[in-house]
């Protein structure tokens, strides 16, 4: 992802001659595209992992393919997606730290600036940055665990 971020950072203004105003959008595009790809895999995998018998039962009840997806498959697949979505959101949170490298002023960016003026305070500063990320991640960790227990209940698989 860091390669893609750099590539977009240098290539977009060069290739399209557009200045996006800030690097904000470059970060959004790079991170969004990356995790969009991962999440689409999660969605696909969850839908495929709903047991075949569910589709057959829905067919036997004469549901249309849209009804099968809406009433039977998707509600079950969503439960399976929850923990993965939580996990990837944490990954994404971690991934945002890369934008400090293209000059966006995030937590890490300020941490770096502080360190450059107080070299011997580096341990404290970076520890503080780490703790901040961790505090941001805590609700996501909680959600992921919650999602895991939801997804274990009430889903037919196999």
């Amino acid at each position: 992802m860091i390669v893609q971020l750099f590539w977009l950072y240098y290539a977009i203004p060069m290739l399209f001659g557009i200045n996006l105003g800030s690097n904000w959008w470059i970060g959004v595009i790079a991170i969004g595209l990356n995790y969009g790809a991962y999440l689409s895999e999660v969605v696909r995998g969850s839908i495929l992992s709903v047991a075949k018998g569910q589709t057959e039962a829905a067919t036997a009840l004469n549901m249309s393919s849209f009804q099968r997806m809406r009433l039977v498959i998707f509600p079950q697949a969503v439960r399976m997606m929850l923990p993965e979505f939580g996990n990837y959101t944490i990954q994404m949170l971690k991934g945002t730290s890369l934008v400090s490298l293209i000059g966006l002023t995030d937590v890490l960016y300020y941490g770096d600036i502080m360190r450059s003026t107080n070299l011997d305070q580096a341990p404290l500063i970076y520890l503080l940055v780490l703790v901040m990320y961790f505090i941001l991640a805590l609700p996501l960790i909680w959600l992921t665990r919650k999602g895991e227990s939801i997804s274990k209940k009430g889903v037919a698989s196999g």
Binding site: L98, R115, A122, P123, L127, L130, Y133
Partner: peptide, 23 residues
Amino acid sequence: MEFIRSTPPLVQLFFIFYAWPMI
């Protein structure tokens, strides 16, 4: 483990490279 896993590896790298020697 949870702490290491849910904080950015980039910051961890900086910590080990820049901060560790200062401890």
